[in-house]
Design a protein around this nucleic acid. Structure first.
Length: 638
RNA sequence: GCUGCUGUAGCUCAGUGGUAGAGCGCGUCCUUGGUAAGGACGAGGUCAUGGGUUCAAGUCCCAUCAGCAGCUCCA
């Protein structure tokens, strides 16, 4: 007799060997239909799993997020079968689920192309229509090894699997794969799926290993969920900063300078507004600002250690038989400025900021719009201080980070603390002090953070700040890094209270990271709808007809006098067309002016994101826009 | 860097080895129109670059460059 305990506490007394599926059928046809898998004594199992003795049983239905994952994994098997039936020579490697879908790595001489997707999907549909059950069987390790002999990938998978008993799943005729399961009952239970893409992927993620073909697919419970997912991807594509950058005239990229972005007038407005804000807030936090050269003698980079550790990523040039490097980082230049004069402990903490233009050679496949480039401007700063000042300084930087992120509406910030790696310089004592100071600062701010043990730089521990964009991608923006190497290498000193020379602590920090990348992220974050204070064009004035051109020009002049960025559309179009065209440029406000407005000295306001219009006097409009601009308001409501 | 795909008008993209195309945008003109695209005409091309095959190449082949997707990398 099996005693099956259900989540609600009810105990069913059933015959030994009854399957989870049979239990669902005894409970009700609705549950039987929705059931995807079972949790038996807390372990995920197939519905076909027999129950014996005293067990707890929880039925996983498609309301459970794990159910989607199970179905996607089954879908990966179905795709694998389809591929193997089309290309019998295909060798299966590994097919896990991922966010929003799954992939399968296969080894196959012939390339699978996007044109083949339809063929694969058709075959998959046939497999689903056949509704064959997923059959599970277990083999002892040695048996399994014999079973997969000849397929080096499966042999490898068996070797990597844990446990003495390995499980295999088969469905239909002759398709079988090593897999720990569980799976849905039968192929007919698969929802709506689509093959998404194919790309190369190294075996074991190792670039010295063979490159396999990775086919990506997605699978959802029903057609509606699938099409919603595809719509979402379509939406995301529209938010792509490369697409919007073109559409809004913000920046361009050219073959003549791969990875070097060209900023256009509209993009420069955003750039300059961020810079203005950045300077203002750094002044408030008592930073000084410097600017150091882009090209510096190679000798400097040998001294700094970049020659040994970073040479592959640097650009070089030579003039008058002297070899120069294009700077990949700002710190060595900053050190020269520091060394240019004597320093006393009384000057500390000394906070020196630099918007430094750096060049880093990235592999060609790495470039991505503004987000991964070969030339970028870092919002860098170096803080020189005493060891006992570290904690306070880090607290100061954290405050600054949050104040800056808040202005852009980034509230989902994740923090990571990376500690001493195996290969490091500096005494354990100084590492302990520094790491303790970083922890102390985070604890003081009562901030949750994740510790990455041993992930710090060789020269010091660090704190990284990550934010999430609209595509839920996580971006590292800010970083605070302690450096025990550079001050010594450059022989930086200060005179301490006891009149001896000591080496200062150097804190590197960046908050936005790279201006280029930050602007790219901002564009996606806002979907191109830049907040008023950053909008390249804040107001577009549209005339009803030529008759009111004079009045419109007068309004435009008034707005410009109040430092409002605006322009005029006096083209021969009807007002509807003007609105539609302006709409794609996404200005926060459109002002429609016709004879009525001209007579009353007012404007008709259309706010971005709303189809409602309202009327206001010119002065009133100017006043409100100036206010919202000054407080960096994200709310345009008029 | 690796695998695959792509490169045609300012933009988005069609194009079957035989005369270079569309929509949007741009210019001129008509139209003076009240809230998401009025009409006519016109200009605009070394089909990424360099080789090759062919009577003939945007189209087929090779190389290079750049972009896209992913992998790897990332102080």
């Amino acid at each position: 007799m099996a005693k099956v305990k259900l989540p609600d506490g009810k105990i069913l007394e059933l015959q030994d060997g009854v399957t989870a599926k049979q239990v669902t059928e005894s409970i009700g046809p609705g549950l039987a239909k929705a059931a995807v898998a079972a949790k038996i004594d807390g372990e995920l199992k197939d519905l076909s799993c027999p129950l014996n003795g005293e067990v707890s049983l929880e039925i996983i239905t498609n309301k459970d997020p794990i159910a989607l994952e199970i179905m996607r994994h089954s879908c990966a098997h179905i795709m694998a079968e389809a591929i193997c039936s089309i290309w019998p020579k295909a060798e299966l490697v590994y097919g896990p689920t991922i966010d929003d879908g799954f992939y399968y790595d296969i080894d196959l001489e012939e390339s699978i192309r996007p044109e083949d997707f339809e063929r694969i999907e058709k075959k998959m549909t046939e497999i689903v229509a056949a509704d064959s059950p997923f059959v599970h069987r277990e083999l002892l390790r040695q048996e399994a090894m014999l079973h997969v002999a000849g397929n080096r990938y499966k042999v490898d998978n068996v070797e990597r699997a844990s446990g003495d008993v390995l499980s295999f799943y088969s469905h239909g005729q002759g398709f079988e794969d090593l897999c720990k399961g569980p799976h849905i009952g039968s192929t007919g239970k698969i929802g709506s799926f689509k093959i998404m893409s194919v790309a190369g992927a190294y075996w074991h993620g190792d670039s010295t290993e063979k490159m396999l073909q990775r086919i990506y697919g997605t699978c959802w419970f029903n057609k509606k969920d699938l099409s919603e997912h595809l719509d979402l991807l379509e939406e995301a594509k529209k938010r792509d900063h490369r697409v919007l950058g073109k559409q809004l005239g913000l920046f361009s990229l050219h073959e003549e300078g791969p990875g070097f972005a060209f900023f256009h007038p509209n993009g420069m407005v955003i750039w300059n507004k961020i810079t203005e804000f950045w300077r203002e807030i750094h002044q408030k936090y008592e930073y000084q600002e410097i600017k150091t050269p882009i090209i510096l003698d190679e000798k400097l980079w040998k001294k700094s250690g970049h020659w040994d550790n970073y040479k592959e990523n640097m650009y070089f040039t030579s003039v008058d038989e002297v070899n120069y490097a294009i700077k990949p980082m700002n710190c060595p230049g900053g050190c020269l400025v520091y060394k240019n004069s004597q320093h006393s402990y009384k000057e500390f903490p000394m906070k020196v900021a630099e918007l430094g233009l750096v060049h880093r050679y990235e592999a060609s496949g790495m470039m991505h719009g503004l987000v991964r480039v070969r030339q970028f401007t870092q919002d860098d700063a170096h803080i020189f201080c005493l060891p006992e000042q570290i904690e306070n300084e880090v607290i100061g930087v954290i405050n600054l980070v949050f104040e800056i992120y808040e202005a852009f509406g980034f509230d989902d910030v994740r923090i990571e603390l990376s500690t001493k790696p195996a290969k490091h310089i500096g005494s354990d004592e100084i590492w302990d002090i520094a790491t303790g100071a970083l922890k102390g600062a985070l604890d003081h701010k009562k901030i949750d953070y994740q510790i990455n043990e041993g992930d710090g730089a060789f020269y010091g521990p660090k704190i990284d700040f990550h934010i999430k964009d609209c595509l839920k991608r996580s971006w590292q923006l800010g970083t605070i890094q302690l450096d025990f190497s550079m001050p010594e290498r450059f022989g930086l000193v200060y005179t301490d209270r006891d009149n001896t020379e000591k080496t200062p602590v150097m804190i590197h920090r960046a908050i936005l990271g790279s201006f280029e990348r930050f602007i790219g992220i901002l564009i996606e974050h806002y979907g191109g709808n830049m907040p008023l204070w950053l909008a390249p064009e804040q107001v577009k004035i549209l005339t009803i007809s030529e008759k009111t051109n004079d009045y419109a020009m007068e309004v435009c002049r008034k707005l410009k006098q109040s430092q409002i960025r605006c322009s005029l559309d006096v083209s021969d179009e009807k007002i509807g067309a003007k609105i539609a065209r302006t709409h794609s440029q996404k200005p926060p406000y459109m002002l429609v002016v016709g004879p009525k407005e001209a007579q009353e000295g007012c404007v008709n306001v259309r706010t971005r994101g709303s189809k409602e219009t309202s009327s206001a006097s010119v002065d009133e409009f100017v006043k409100i826009v100036k206010e919202k601009n000054a407080e960096k308001s994200q709310d345009l409501t008029f």
